[in-house]
């Protein structure tokens, strides 16, 4: 009997808010591999994840939902298949300030659709307060034109309410697609 899909994965490029999002919804302080940034700092960001973030959320009967945050940089792609094995959902986070948010999101969506074909995907756009010019409908329609039809929404990774809302959207989407 196969194990149930028991992982939730956040992926995105540097500064997208993966570590913050994992922390926002976790029961316990995540295990992180954050290191001081060696290059130019991004705003108030002084550390970056060099491997992954891990945490868990306790469910009924003491079962655990494993929550991962993995960097979207290509040189770390060797860990993507390991982390995504048995994932029920993958949430791609992208900063509204990214120089090419559509291309970077599409690249991750296509890659993770291939790596985790049974996982449901959703997109969270962070930092829209700092970059209000990025409007969700326009961004979402660009993803759709490239073949991706999925939940896309604004999220403040610091807000447990908003990250939870994004996860709820992913779960509702997965449920509706499979029933």
């Amino acid at each position: 009997m196969s194990l149930p899909a028991n992982k939730l994965v956040f992926v995105g490029s540097m500064g997208a808010g993966k570590t913050t999002a994992v922390r926002a919804i976790s029961d316990v302080e995540p295990v992180s591999t954050e290191m001081p940034m060696s290059g130019d700092a991004m705003g108030d960001k002084v550390e970056t994840t060099v491997a992954l973030d891990y945490s868990s959320i306790e469910l009924d009967d003491g079962e655990l939902l494993h929550v991962y945050g993995v960097p979207g940089q290509r040189y770390l792609d060797f860990m993507w298949p390991m982390v995504c094995e048995g994932a029920l959902g993958v949430i791609v986070l992208v900063s509204a300030g990214h120089p090419d948010p559509v291309a970077s999101t599409l690249e991750l969506l296509e890659e993770f659709s291939r790596i985790a074909p049974d996982a449901s995907l959703a997109v969270g756009v962070t930092r829209t307060d700092e970059h209000p010019a990025l409007l969700i409908p326009e961004f979402r329609n660009a993803l759709f034109d490239a073949g991706q039809r999925l939940p896309v929404m604004r999220v403040d990774a610091r807000s447990a309410t908003q990250v939870t809302f994004l996860v709820k959207s992913l779960l509702s989407y997965r449920y509706a697609e499979t029933n």
Binding site: A5, L171, Y175, E177
Partner: peptide, 21 residues
């Protein structure tokens, strides 16, 4: 997108859903 429905997932998935309200 029609995903494979896996009965073994249902119970665990319902717990996850409930955990998120």
């Amino acid at each position: 997108t029609q995903r494979r429905k896996d009965a073994s997932d249902s119970r665990f998935f319902s717990w996850v859903a409930r955990r998120f309200g």
